[in-house]
Nucleic acid binder design. Structure first.
Lengths: 242, 242
DNA sequence: GCCGATTTGTCCGTATGTATC
DNA sequence: CGATACATACGGACAAATCGG
């Protein structure tokens, strides 16, 4: 549930757009109209609109108005966009998730590992390999590194469910942001084995490497997600600012 | 040059962060301090900070302060992030760009083409195939579709330079936003031929499909960019909003 | 082409809430 | 508990772009 006014307005407008209350290319009511309708201040309404712009739902034009440019996307494959756990994504995509823990280890990072994870050399981490299934199909092979100091008490059992649920609801950690890099990499033997890919077909994967920070400003997670290429989709809306 | 106050403050802080004026994990001065320093209002300063948050440069924490979480990235490969033309990216990465036009055609879209480009069936477009070189290496094979109505007078000569330069400086068009989808696709014969890829090595590509809108709210461009996988990198910062 | 009305963009000042120390 | 820091919200002023008469 939205706790703030601008969030509830944002949510309401977003839903109206998704529900086709405004047709593609149609203008939304003017700021003043919406201000009256929602009984809020101008800044508050503008903030809600601004979120819709970021989402790529609408476009604002000085002197003209706000135009709906939303188009529904095909949900045929597994899509990524925001920060969310595998289970959240699965639910959003309407699919049945299952997670298998291939490896659960504890280790101290050497120089090389420290360099690509972003942790300090010698840092104590949980290192996990997890295989994520969707509707019975293995789609993603994850290499997770969790800083022990920040994520105490992690177990294999927790890792089989939702780690993010554990972080947020048990440890009461607040996840803030995640820096991500997307690349295409050659398939390894491990990928081939677990993702059941035919090298003749695909010899590459979509790889998303992410560094995630909590509200203490601590980098607590480095994850490399190796995706089956034929089920990978990443959405983004970029805004040009001169 | 920034035209507004918040943009100039944003730019100044961004530069200070990149110049290592604040070390990693160090707190920035408080809002009030910066307000005094820049002689601006609270809202204006907060807006500048908010841009830095979007960039993944800083993290704000209620009651605590603003923390620098910027880390320089290796510029070894061709990186994407915002909306920018190939030449802009090349310049930012300090590399020598060159563009070869493989095909320049005019056509009316059939049903199938309309479906994936997002244009209306029957729409008149320029269809281009362009090969982008960086430091003499062919890296990206682009399939561009430009709506004739919105981009009149496009020629092969213009396409060999910067089309965006033509759009913005000659046609005075304002580019607003670009919806992008990233996928991994199997290599085609055309890719293989022009990108000089060895199929034994890589049989896939990174593909970025984008729909770009101008300030008239018109979808004027659909482009499919097919990137050499070993030189492709896409950066992103995601913010968790519960 | 001009002018006024409309609409969005920027900026300011202030008040109150909430989390941290 | 008080002081500090960021978060939300309001109201008002002016600028800039657009549109219609």
């Amino acid at each position: 549930m939205p706790k703030t006014i601008y969030q509830s307005i944002y949510k309401d407008l977003k839903q109206k757009i998704e529900n086709d209350d405004f047709s593609y290319q149609e203008m939304l009511p003017s700021e003043n109209t919406l201000i009256q309708k929602y009984g809020c201040s101008r800044n508050t309404l503008r903030r809600a609109i601004s979120c819709l712009v970021t989402d790529g739902y609408v476009q604002t034009m000085q002197g003209k108005g706000v135009r709906n440019i939303y188009r529904p996307i095909e949900q045929t494959s597994f899509t990524i966009g925001e920060i969310e756990s595998f289970r959240e994504s699965a639910k959003r995509n309407g699919l049945e998730p299952y997670t298998r823990v291939l490896l659960f280890a504890e280790l101290a990072l050497n120089q090389k590992q420290a360099a690509y994870t972003g942790f300090a050399p010698g840092a104590e981490v949980y290192y996990l390999q997890r295989l994520h299934y969707l509707d019975g199909l293995p789609l993603i092979l994850n290499h997770n590194y969790f800083l022990k100091e920040a994520v105490p008490g992690l177990t294999k059992e927790i890792a089989e469910g939702s780690i993010y649920d554990y972080l947020e609801n048990t440890l009461h950690m607040t996840i803030v942001n995640s820096k991500r890099v997307m690349t295409v990499e050659k398939i390894t033997e491990i990928d081939e084995k677990y993702l059941k890919l035919n090298v003749e077909d695909y010899n590459c994967l979509a790889v998303v490497s992410s560094q995630t920070y909590n509200s203490d400003g601590i980098l607590f997670e480095y994850t490399q997600s190796r995706h089956r290429p034929d089920y990978f989709r990443f959405y983004d809306n970029a805004v040009r600012n001169k």
